[in-house]
Design a binder for these strands. Structure first.
Lengths: 215, 215
DNA sequence: CCACTATCGATAGCCATACTATCTAGGTGC
DNA sequence: GCACCTAGATAGTATGGCTATCGATAGTGG
């Protein structure tokens, strides 16, 4: 298909497709002449993936490109692909509070997890703990074990899905997509579960007459 | 304390504090004269909260302002505060695939959750499902029940924390902070659990020689 | 074979967001 | 008194993510 058809099929404007091509996130079509290239279904899928990374996971163009490169790199062990995906997710820099890291390490130790100190998830979790504390909401820390338990189960399911995939390209793709989009899936499900739990616990809840905002 | 001291205490530049004041996210200090105002510890905490919303949850200034307004609105039932927080989180607009919503509804029905069709989490989850499918990674859908179970447990713990809070201001604050920052806490824990699960299942894993990127 | 439309590749422009800097008229504190 | 700070207003900047235009070319219908 031609670029205009690719645009129509994917819903992404031609100018934006060209931009993604320039940024190296999308492979060029097979050139049939100097001014004509042929795009395939694979390009449609790729655009869908790019949009998912950007819209859903909130990745920057630069991060998305890295993750896509990891997916594409056939020689890369998928474990590395997983690490790249994990690092591409927005991670805060400053944690400031050593006590927070300590608490996270305790949780990790209690679950007998084997986690490197550089794991970006560790810094993120520590930052949240640190903020809970700084905000005087230590009560929220009581939930952390439930969160950790839930994370463990989800991670196990994720890994099972990866192991079930056949071949390294499928594995790498599965792990990357699962890592990046899984957070959003959980977020959506949690928000629904909140509404339900809230409804059964408290009278007036989760109204529907509030306008959606942001995007 | 003066604005420069507030800046020092919070780590936020004076110019940025002024910007937040202008945007109505931070209450003005008590003016001791035409050119002097006094800020309190509450201002430091507020700045911390603003930074957490922006850095960790990735909220825009506009979204953060709305959520903060919900926290501040004493007359607002905290159930509404929860809904506002939920809606402030980035939510995709287009879901395109009706089959995806159907699948989500099935999951919801299986768990006997009571969720309105307008719940933004529903659109988000549907979008992820839709993308899993469009990308030909239907295998990832096998994990959705585990995710839902995990979300249910986490939500129950969240609500328990809210119920334990004393007074409506504390409840509203707890629910908002928990909603907005809880996703990140889970994300961090999941990424650690991934590393652990990956290490026990596969040989080479989660390397530490890859540079962190993005922010 | 000739107008016409589409494409490629390159470059420049645009717009929103989140700050950051400057300026003026005033206060503070030693 | 005098160096230094502050409030409040306004203007400027940097970045990210597109979007628009252009010239050269080329395939397409008649």
């Amino acid at each position: 298909m031609r670029i205009s058809e690719l645009s129509a099929a994917s819903g992404v404007p031609v100018a934006t497709i060209k931009y993604y091509l320039r940024e190296g996130m999308l492979a060029a079509g097979e050139k049939s002449s100097a001014t004509q290239a042929d795009y395939s279904e694979a390009h449609v899928a790729r655009l869908r993936l790019i949009r998912a990374f950007i819209d859903i996971a909130g990745l920057s163009i630069a991060s998305a490109r890295e993750v896509l490169a990891a997916v594409d790199d056939e020689g890369l062990h998928f474990g590395y692909a997983a690490a790249i995906a994990s690092r591409a997710l927005p991670t805060p820099s400053a944690s400031t509070d050593p006590g927070a890291e300590e608490l996270i390490d305790e949780v990790v130790a209690a679950r007998r997890w084997c986690v490197s100190a550089e794991n970006p998830g560790r810094a993120l979790a520590a930052r949240v703990v640190s903020d809970y504390r700084a905000l005087g909401r230590d009560d929220l820390l009581a939930t952390i074990d439930v969160y950790a338990e839930a994370a463990e189960r989800v991670a196990a399911a994720d890994l099972q899905a990866v192991a079930a995939a056949s071949g390294r390209p499928a594995m790498a793709e599965t792990v990357v997509i699962g890592t990046v989009l899984g957070d959003s899936l959980f977020s959506g499900l949690r928000r629904m579960a909140h509404e339900d739990a809230s409804a059964s616990r408290f009278p007036i809840t989760a109204p529907t007459d509030i306008q959606p905002k942001d995007a």
